[in-house]
């Protein structure tokens, strides 16, 4: 057996067209692999389209997609190493008992860890002798979590699939994800629009909006990069001239803006002297500012 090498991902100018609508519109990024990536985007931003192409669920319209240096579509060397669990909680037979599904998965995926799957199913209290169609939404999501983690695929993707679980189950999922990743480091991509809860699981974060990449960075760097600036409108405008301003709102003569970028000590001192108040910005706020109505901002 070759040693487990993380699968890098290269995406260049990726397009996916549904008739007149471009779900992905020239998306480009590259991931070194072996990390837990957060894929953030609003509903309809193209998250699911991107993951579907990576998992070879659908064919791209144009552009380049390489996983471990190879095109994934209809390439069994890649697809055997990739697992995508979709929103509904994974693609499985509805009229089949859980214990059989796990056995089937073990037959179809050489890397599937059946013992681990049984252990996880027990932790999520899944009724092994019941059919999938008799499961609650939360149990369906938990089944997706089990299938995804136990698949042991070198690229494992969860497309908001865990959101159907209640809070205790979601936390159990986060625990298992970290334990699994620590023991067997590989590439995970987790898409979400509920950021606060999962952001700390990520090492890097990608934000896509309208089928394009808005941001890709180390999540810790992103956290230190958003700065809110509050003060008299003219002073704020002077200070933020030349900085990347994401949004702004005014209340009387006071203006509050969110700046993206690291301020150095000189800038911070200058801000203090000018009577401006600087504050941190959460990843969630930053996400909202980066993806929320940029047109309205440009007009201001």
């Amino acid at each position: 057996m070759e040693p487990p090498v993380s699968l890098g991902i290269e995406v260049r100018d990726l397009r996916l067209q549904y008739g007149d609508v471009a779900a992905l519109d020239g998306l480009s990024f590259s991931l070194s692999g072996g990390k837990i990536y957060g894929l953030l985007g609003r509903n309809g931003s193209g998250k699911t389209s991107l993951l579907s192409i990576l998992a070879a669920f659908r064919r791209k319209t144009s552009g380049t997609v390489h996983i471990g240096g190879q095109e994934p579509f209809e390439n069994e060397r890649v697809t055997a190493e990739v697992c995508l669990i979709r929103e509904s909680g994974g693609d499985v037979y509805d009229n089949t008992r859980l214990e059989q599904l796990l056995r089937m998965a073990a037959d179809l995926r050489p890397a599937f860890d059946h013992q681990y799957a049984l252990k996880l199913a027990d932790r999520f209290q899944l009724p092994m002798r019941k059919n999938v169609q008799s499961l609650s939404r939360g149990q369906r999501s938990a089944l997706g979590a089990v299938m995804g983690l136990a698949a042991n695929a070198r690229l494992t993707m969860f497309d908001e699939s865990y959101l159907g679980m209640d809070a205790p189950s979601r936390y159990a999922f986060y625990d298992e994800l970290i334990a699994n990743y620590t023991e067997n480091p590989r590439t995970f991509i987790i898409s979400t629009h509920l950021i606060e809860e999962v952001a700390r699981l990520f090492e890097e974060v990608l934000i896509i909006h309208k089928g394009r990449l808005v941001l890709h960075d180390d999540v810790e760097a992103v956290r230190s990069r958003g700065v809110s600036v509050i003060g008299p409108a003219e002073v704020v405008d002077t200070f933020t001239a030349g900085l990347t301003v994401l949004n702004g709102q005014s209340l009387g003569r006071t203006k509050a803006v969110t700046v993206y970028g690291t301020l150095d000590d000189d800038q911070r001192r200058a801000a203090a002297l000018a009577g401006l108040e600087l504050g941190p910005v959460s990843l969630q706020d930053l996400f909202v500012h980066l993806t929320g109505q940029p047109e309205a901002e440009a007009a201001r």
Binding site: K35, I36, Y171, Y174, D175, I178, A179, Y181, T182, R200, L201, F202, E203, V219, E220
Partner: peptide, 16 residues
């Protein structure tokens, strides 16, 4: 790793 699982954070973050 203990830190990462205890606080549910990415191991790389704890390592940093």
């Amino acid at each position: 790793n203990q830190y990462a699982s205890f606080y549910r954070i990415n191991p790389a973050t704890a390592a940093k």
